[in-house]
């Protein structure tokens, strides 16, 4: 079962659209209200990161399933400057953008699977999955 859509993240209004689209998909997959709220919040953080740190990018929203249960996979990709030190970037409170430094580290806590792939000069890809319980 795969059902995917892709959205651009090029402006602040796109961050709102990503939140709304992720909410709709999370409901479709049957996530509980708390889990919907968690994954939408994570999506908001990651979409804003894509915009602020890379100047924009895109997100792929996929409904996934492993037979037993459904889930939502979000892939945020950009061709921005990349992250030189992944471990540091995942530390609570560490920021280069003047924020609170909770975007990456906080989103990781809100989802079930979190994968960060980045290389300086080549861009960043963050993939998260939230499973229905």
């Amino acid at each position: 079962m795969t059902d995917a859509i892709e959205l651009p993240i090029a402006a602040n209004s796109d961050v709102v659209l990503v939140r709304q689209r992720v909410r709709t998909s999370a409901q479709q997959v049957g996530l509980s209200l708390v889990d919907q709220t968690k994954v939408v919040t994570a999506a908001s953080e990651l979409a804003r990161n894509t915009l602020v740190y890379a100047g924009g990018g895109r997100v792929r929203i996929e409904v996934v399933g492993n037979g037993a249960r459904g889930g939502l996979r979000l892939t945020f990709a950009d061709e921005g400057p990349g992250i030189p030190d992944l471990e540091l970037a995942l530390t609570d409170g560490w920021t280069t953008g003047g924020g609170l430094g909770l975007g990456l580290s906080g989103s990781r806590r809100l989802v079930d699977e979190f994968d960060l792939d980045s290389e300086p000069g080549k861009g960043t890809r963050v993939t998260v999955v939230k499973w229905a319980r």
């Binding site: 708390v34 968690k38 909770l102 580290s105 906080g106």
Partner: peptide, 14 residues
């Protein structure tokens, strides 16, 4: 504040 929002906020680290 909605309960789901409170749970999420705390887990986020705020």
């Amino acid at each position: 504040m909605r309960p789901a929002v409170a749970i999420t906020l705390v887990e986020l680290g705020l």
